[in-house]
Amino acid sequence: MKDISEYITERTNNIDLASYITTDNMLQNFEGVKAFTGKTEAESAVAYRKGDILLSNIRPYLKKMWLADKNGSCSPDVLVFRSDTSKVSPEFLYYSLRRDDFIDFIMHNAGTKGIKMPRGNKEEIPNYSISLPSLDQQAILVTEIRKYEEKISDARLSIASCPSRKQAILDNYLK
């Protein structure tokens, strides 16, 4: 990973709460982020760009990771990785890291600090190895993965609407 991406530590004083990311508004199980609704006393934060990969470094086993779709800032408890786009597409790197194998690496091989709220070892995480096909092959794989992501999203929407549809049937026929 260290040969194809950079660990970003650049700070910014421009903290826009609409694009601010903390470990609290990152969703578990690689589900992305939700809007930040809190307040921050921080005077500076880590700057991230669209295409960067953000990873919660607190309790990595919760699998909080996001491929940024905008520019913004984040708390220092969120690690930011930026792809070297001459070698790897940001989406391919994201999907390569969005795996239990990567989380296991952080938890068991890279080493963590703390028991109740373990933190990943920032120096060792970049040592994670991934397979790196050509950029053309990466694009093909990402396109295929996107198709499945769309199907998963559609299925989740359908499942989410089932309880209300069921209740409508019950209300209509069991008066």
Rank of each mutant, 00 (worst) to 15 (best):
L54G: 05
C74G: 12
V80K: 09
N25P: 00
N14C: 10
S73N: 04
L27Y: 06
F30K: 05
R49C: 04
I15V: 15
K34H: 01
Y48Q: 07
T37L: 05
A35W: 00
L79N: 14
V78M: 08
I53F: 03
K50A: 02
S83K: 08
N13P: 09
M65C: 05
E43M: 10
L62H: 02
D16Y: 11
C74E: 08
A18I: 11
V33H: 03
A68W: 03
P90G: 11
T23S: 12
L79F: 13
D24W: 02
T23N: 14
E41Y: 03
N57D: 11
V80M: 11
S19T: 15
A18C: 12
I53K: 01
A45E: 03
N57P: 01
L67P: 11
D69N: 13
I21M: 07
Y61P: 05
L54A: 06
D16G: 13
Q28I: 07
M65G: 07
T37V: 05
S19P: 10
T37Q: 10
E91K: 14
C74P: 09
M65V: 09
Y61K: 10
M65L: 12
T23I: 14
E31C: 08
L55N: 12
D77I: 10
K39F: 07
S86H: 08
K70D: 04
A42W: 01
N71F: 10
G38Y: 02
V46T: 15
D24F: 06
K39T: 09
D69K: 10
K39C: 02
N13K: 15
M26E: 00
S44E: 07
K70P: 04
S89F: 14
K70Q: 06
V88L: 07
E91I: 10
I15L: 15
K63C: 08
A47E: 09
F36Y: 14
E41R: 07
E91N: 14
D16Q: 13
D84H: 13
G32R: 01
V46Y: 12
T22G: 05
L62C: 02
L17T: 11
N71R: 11
A45L: 00
Q28C: 06
A35G: 13
D16V: 13
T40H: 01
K34M: 00
D52G: 01
K70H: 03
A47I: 00
L62M: 08
I15H: 15
Y61W: 13
Y48M: 06
L67D: 15
P76I: 12
T37Y: 02
S19M: 04
F81M: 12
C74V: 10
G51Y: 11
E43N: 13
D24E: 15
S44P: 00
Y61C: 08
Q28M: 07
N25C: 00
S86Q: 10
N29A: 01
R82M: 05
V33K: 07
A42Y: 05
C74I: 03
T40S: 10
V80F: 13
V46L: 14
P60F: 07
F81Q: 08
L67Q: 13
T37S: 09
K50R: 04
N14H: 12
D77A: 13
S73F: 01
L55T: 10
L17Q: 02
G72V: 05
S44H: 09
A18Y: 13
K70R: 09
A68L: 08
F36W: 02
F36Q: 07
A68E: 05
Y61E: 11
I53C: 07
F81A: 11
P90Q: 13
L17G: 10
A18V: 11
T40L: 03
F30N: 04
K87L: 11
P90S: 15
L54S: 06
A68H: 09
D69S: 12
